[in-house]
């Protein structure tokens, strides 16, 4: 059942068309992640849903009600900002209770709700402090707490973890996932970090230049990207995309006719490194990245293409060694000259 429905949503900044007609259906309880490179419009789209920017075209419906022109304060959405945006002149308790107080909720109920949220977020001992007396991670939890005490129809997160250091980011990511499982609330989460997108989302919306490139579950996007952009945006290290012209004829012939002027896409795990002469493509190791659990090998082929291979075994190979590559062509994605997928990998 459609809970939040975007139909042809558009946004102009001056003459620049930032959002170019977005259609999207979000179901109740879903965790949706907007992801894309900077400037793709993901934050703008979130702000349109939040009502912080006016919608210039199309409609927005929430729970069967048209909210296109409704001000933010009437939409019953809660937002967690990248900069936390806590009220600096209020205590943690006042920050978290602000919305309920505005809604004239009974003070006893407010106290109970805030204390419950504080307990969930490990904030009980900080309720009387002001935001400036808290660490970054604690502030972020207060921002999340401020959103959850309201029990809004939809939670909006605008890159909430990008101001945290790497360790805290991982930890908070897990907490957000847990919180979503407990509350089951509909959530829209904006990030440029594809790991967050992959780990948190029920469905990921990949945006580019104000348009949706693809919507799907994380693994759908990984296994069956609709085009070269999505294929390269999802997954680290990036999918290897080799122009058809740089492929040995033996490999090129395996692809569909439409990909003859296009390219082949191979995930790093679909490329294996073998001793010289044993594979189908010859090359030379340029760089070895030993990450412990896995090893990444950057190999330049005789035709000039660079391929990354991922393997779980450790290796003695060094930069400069001659090797041979075996590519799992059944796991290859074939793109036409416009970057569209013409033949997806068989999974």
């Amino acid at each position: 059942m459609a809970y939040l429905q975007l139909r042809g949503v558009e946004k102009f900044f001056g003459r620049h068309r930032a959002i170019k007609g977005i259609d999207l259906t979000i179901n109740k309880g879903e965790f949706i992640v907007f992801v894309g490179p900077s400037g793709c419009g993901k934050s703008t789209l979130l702000r349109l849903i939040a009502g912080l920017e006016g919608i210039d075209g199309g409609t927005l419906e929430l729970d069967g009600r048209d909210i296109t022109d409704l001000p933010s304060s009437k939409r019953d959405l809660a937002m967690v900002f990248q900069s936390y945006a806590l009220y600096p002149h209020m205590s943690v308790f006042e920050n978290m209770s602000f919305a309920l107080k505005l809604a004239k909720v009974d003070p006893a109920v407010i106290r109970e709700k805030v204390e419950r949220a504080a307990a969930t977020l490990n904030l009980t001992t900080y309720l009387e402090r002001t935001p400036k007396e808290l660490s970054g991670g604690q502030r972020q939890r207060v921002a999340i707490g401020r959103a959850i005490v309201r029990a809004p129809k939809v939670f909006l997160f605008d890159e909430p973890l990008s101001n945290l250091d790497a360790a805290l980011r991982g930890q908070t990511r897990v907490e957000i996932a847990k919180l979503h499982r407990e509350l089951g609330a509909t959530t829209i989460y904006v990030t440029h970090d594809q790991v967050e997108a992959m780990t948190l989302a029920d469905r990921v919306v990949v945006l580019r230049d104000g348009l949706i490139e693809q919507v799907g579950t994380p693994l759908e996007l990984y296994d069956r990207p609709a085009n070269q952009f999505v294929a390269q945006f999802i997954g680290t290290p990036q999918m290897n995309v080799v122009p058809a012209g740089q492929l040995p004829p033996g490999v090129r012939q395996l692809g569909p006719q439409a990909a003859a002027q296009g390219a082949i896409g191979l995930r790093p795990e679909a490329v294996s490194v073998l001793p010289k002469g044993l594979g189908t493509v010859d090359g030379r190791v340029e760089l070895v990245e030993a990450l412990g659990a896995e090893t990444l090998l950057y190999v330049r082929t005789a035709e000039g293409a660079q391929l990354v291979a991922r393997q779980s075994e450790r290796t003695r190979l060094q930069a400069g060694d001659d090797v041979s590559l075996n590519v799992a062509t059944d796991q290859a994605h074939w793109f036409d000259s416009a970057g569209r997928v013409v033949q997806a990998a068989a999974h």
């Binding site: 939040a50 009502g51 912080l52 001000p71 933010s72 304060s73 009437k74 959405l77 809660a78 937002m79 900002f81 990248q82 900069s83 945006a85 806590l86 009220y87 600096p88 602000f98 919305a99 505005l102 809604a103 401020r146 309201r150």
Partner: peptide, 21 residues
């Protein structure tokens, strides 16, 4: 920071409440 005022709007303030509080 403008986000603080935006947060207040999301929390349901009217214009006058946003200014006063």
């Amino acid at each position: 920071p403008p986000e603080i005022l935006e947060a207040a709007r999301m929390d349901g303030t009217t214009l006058w409440q946003e200014v006063r509080l």
